[in-house]
Design a protein around this nucleic acid. Structure first.
Lengths: 203, 203
DNA sequence: ACCTGAACACCGTTCAAGT
DNA sequence: ACCTGAACACCGTTCAAGT
């Protein structure tokens, strides 16, 4: 009744990949325009110029479609932030690069991040554990290299991730919020939280 | 067609208040039991032993009902945490009391906090600005009394609030998470983020 | 294989009708 | 004033039928 490909039987056909990409694109635009609550299959299909039933044919359910939308947006964001953090000369600099990169990416990609937040704020399957795990790994490495004090990497990563997730809402709801200042405040907050004491003082 | 009382015309009648309370109670239990997505008016009404239409009669819409559910839960939580923080002898102690109080309240009121998180995670109108504003006020007071360093009280409050909101999920999804340790880690993290430097060292 | 459009079971809300 | 139950417009999903 519906193609359950990818990690199943055959790879997806060309037309299937094209349709899925088209539907995902229409979904992003629809969510960004009318919000998650009103982004029904009927609206998404109308925007894409297809029948609503076709979405169910290509996706196992609404969860899979929304999950794909979220995954696409996050993949682009992770790549952009990763590039910024790649050249950091220390774990402290890497932490600052991740925080600053995230805030600036939010400021520069409002539609996507707004859609992502709409999804996360409406029970979408955003699976934050990847992000938390990556942050925890970076923090643990920084500890082992002696840059960071002792703390639970997982709980600190969880706290940092939560702080980052709060950024888009504040950035978009308050027009006067200065992205650079927000990034500096956040970076300073977590620098103080993770660094060893008495090393040096700045800011 | 429906009573639009409270801050409108007459006060609510006794029977109206009783019905509203009964419906809110049934909604909390239903959300905690089957999750937000499946907590329909039909299910809530069935649990309360009334018709679904009666909910629409007493509440302007689903948003008002869910908002009332969230408000009731948060009011009880705020009172409990406020009691713990009332006796603090310093702003740093008050900060620690709020963080510790929140974590322990989460650990001790799983059903309510689970329902609240379900609501917040599904686009419910949880209005976090009250909490953020209160935290910001406390932080600002601590700055004016010279206990805290200079930072943006609003952005720090936003960051702290986000960190607190991440607590229930972690606490409930990982059975081995130690609430007391989580509270200590969080308190230590934010203590380091807000305090002046070089005053003293602990932990 | 790919797609449509009607049918289905559900949802929140409205409303005539009862008391 | 308070409440029911049918009707309504919507939703995501299914499925027979077309190509």
């Amino acid at each position: 009744m519906r193609p359950e490909n990818e990690s199943d039987d055959q790879p997806r056909s060309f037309i299937e990949r094209a349709r899925r990409a088209q539907i995902v694109r229409a979904a992003v635009e629809t969510i960004a325009e009318v919000g998650f609550a009103k982004a029904s299959f009927a609206r998404i299909a109308a925007r894409a110029g297809i029948s609503a039933g076709l979405i169910s044919y290509h996706f196992a359910g609404k969860d899979e479609l929304i999950g794909q939308v979220a995954a696409d947006i996050k993949e682009a964001m992770d790549r952009a932030i990763g590039e910024r953090a790649a050249g950091a000369g220390s774990y402290l600099a890497a932490l600052r690069a991740v925080i600053g990169g995230f805030v600036h990416y939010c400021a520069e990609h409002r539609a996507e991040m707004y859609a992502l937040r709409e999804i996360a704020a409406n029970g979408g399957p955003v699976e934050q554990d990847d992000a938390v795990g990556q942050l925890a790994g970076m923090l643990r490495d920084g500890q082992e290299h002696g840059e960071f004090r002792e703390f639970s990497p997982r709980l600190m990563a969880l706290t940092l991730n939560a702080a980052l997730e709060a950024v888009p809402r504040e950035l978009y709801s308050r027009a006067d919020t200065d992205a650079a200042a927000y990034a500096d405040e956040l970076a300073s907050t977590f620098e103080r939280a993770v660094r060893r004491e008495g090393l040096r003082r700045r800011g």
